Simulated scan of single mutants.
Amino acid sequence: MNLQLVRLLHLASPALPVGAFSYSQGLEWAVESGAVTSEAAAQRWIRDALHLALARCEAPALIGLLRAWKAGNACEVARLNAEFIATRETSELRAETLQMGYSLARLLRDLPDTPEATKTALLELREIAFPTPWATAAAHWQIEELDAANAYLWAWLENQVMAAVKLVPLGQTAGQRMLVALAEDLPALALEAVRRADTEDWENFTPGMTLASSQHETQYTRLFRS
Rank of each mutant, 00 (worst) to 15 (best):
N2S: 11
N2I: 14
Q4N: 07
L5V: 12
R7Q: 11
L8P: 02
L11N: 13
G19E: 14
S22H: 09
Y23D: 03
Y23L: 10
S24I: 06
S24V: 00
S24T: 15
G26C: 05
W29I: 00
V31E: 02
G34L: 04
A41G: 07
A41K: 14
A42I: 07
Q43G: 09
R44Q: 13
I46K: 01
I46V: 10
L50F: 12
L52R: 15
A53H: 15
A53L: 13
A55L: 06
R56C: 09
A59I: 08
P60H: 01
A61W: 11
L62R: 00
G64W: 06
L65M: 14
W69S: 08
N73A: 14
A74D: 08
V77M: 12
A78E: 12
A78M: 07
A78L: 11
E83S: 09
F84D: 01
I85N: 01
T87D: 03
T87H: 06
S91G: 06
S91K: 07
L93N: 02
R94S: 13
R94T: 05
E96S: 11
L98D: 01
L98F: 02
M100D: 01
Y102G: 04
S103V: 01
L104H: 15
L104T: 06
R106E: 15
L108T: 05
D110F: 02
P112E: 10
D113K: 10
D113W: 06
T114N: 02
P115N: 02
E116I: 10
A117Y: 13
T118H: 04
K119P: 09
T120V: 06
A121F: 08
R126M: 14
R126E: 15
E127F: 10
I128H: 06
F130H: 15
P131I: 02
P131V: 06
T132I: 04
W134K: 03
T136C: 15
I143L: 08
E145K: 03
A148F: 12
A151H: 03
A151T: 03
Y152L: 07
Y152E: 00
W154P: 00
W154K: 08
W156M: 05
L157E: 06
V161I: 15
A164C: 09
V165I: 10
K166H: 11
V168F: 03
P169V: 08
L170F: 06
T173D: 07
G175D: 07
Q176S: 09
Q176H: 05
R177H: 13
M178T: 02
M178R: 08
M178I: 13
V180K: 03
L182F: 01
A188C: 05
A190I: 02
A190W: 04
L191A: 12
E192C: 11
E192H: 08
A193L: 12
D198A: 15
T199H: 08
E200A: 11
N204S: 12
F205Q: 02
P207V: 03
G208D: 11
T210P: 00
L211W: 08
L211F: 09
Q215M: 13
E217R: 01
T218R: 09
Q219C: 08
T221R: 13
T221D: 07
S226H: 09
